[in-house]
Simulated scan of single mutants.
Amino acid sequence: MKPTRSPVAVRIEDLDDARLVEHARQCDPAAFWVIIKRHNQRLHRVARAVLNDDTEAEDVLQETYIHAFTHLAEFRAEARLSTWLTRIALNEALGRRRKRRPTVDVKALEGMVAPFSAHKPDPEEAAALAEIRSLLERAVGGLPEPFRIVFVMRDVEEMSIEETAVLLALRPRTVSTRLYRARRLLREALRDKLATVFTDTFLFAGDRCDRLAQSVLDRLAIRLVRKDTH
Score class of each variant (00 low, 15 high):
D54L: 13
S160W: 02
M112C: 09
H119Y: 15
L43F: 11
A182R: 09
R171A: 14
Y180G: 07
A165Q: 10
V225F: 05
V8G: 02
L168Y: 11
G95T: 05
A47Q: 12
S134F: 06
A49E: 03
K193T: 09
K227I: 10
F32Q: 03
L43T: 05
W84E: 09
R148P: 06
D207G: 13
E22T: 13
L61S: 11
G95C: 04
S160V: 00
A68I: 02
L43C: 07
A130G: 09
F204S: 08
N40G: 12
I12D: 06
K37C: 04
R181I: 08
Q41D: 08
M112D: 14
A213K: 06
M1I: 08
T4D: 09
L224T: 01
T83N: 04
L136S: 03
T177V: 11
E145P: 05
D155E: 14
V216N: 06
A189H: 03
G206L: 12
R42L: 10
D17M: 12
L167S: 11
R208C: 06
L109S: 15
N91Y: 00
A130W: 08
E110N: 03
F202Y: 14
W33K: 14
L135W: 04
R211I: 07
D28M: 08
Y65G: 01
A24D: 05
N40C: 15
A165G: 11
T4F: 13
L185D: 05
E58M: 14
E22C: 10
F202C: 07
L170N: 04
A127P: 02
T229Q: 15
E56Y: 12
R19I: 01
V21N: 08
L185V: 00
E188G: 01
L217W: 09
R38Y: 03
A93N: 00
V225I: 06
V10K: 14
V50N: 04
A77N: 15
K2W: 07
M112K: 12
R100G: 03
D207S: 15
E63M: 07
P121T: 00
A24Y: 07
H71G: 01
T83W: 08
V10Q: 13
R183N: 11
D210N: 15
R187P: 03
V225D: 07
A205K: 12
S117E: 06
I132K: 15
A93F: 01
R154Q: 09
A30E: 13
Q214P: 06
V225L: 09
E125A: 11
L90S: 00
A30Q: 14
V21K: 10
S117L: 02
T4M: 08
E92Q: 00
R42C: 12
E92K: 03
H44L: 13
A73P: 06
R97H: 05
A127K: 10
L129M: 10
L61P: 12
A68L: 01
Y65T: 01
R38D: 02
A195M: 10
Q26I: 08
R11K: 09
L136C: 06
P102W: 04
R5W: 00
P115W: 01
E137Q: 15
S117K: 08
W33P: 01
F151I: 04
D59M: 11
E163R: 10
E157P: 03
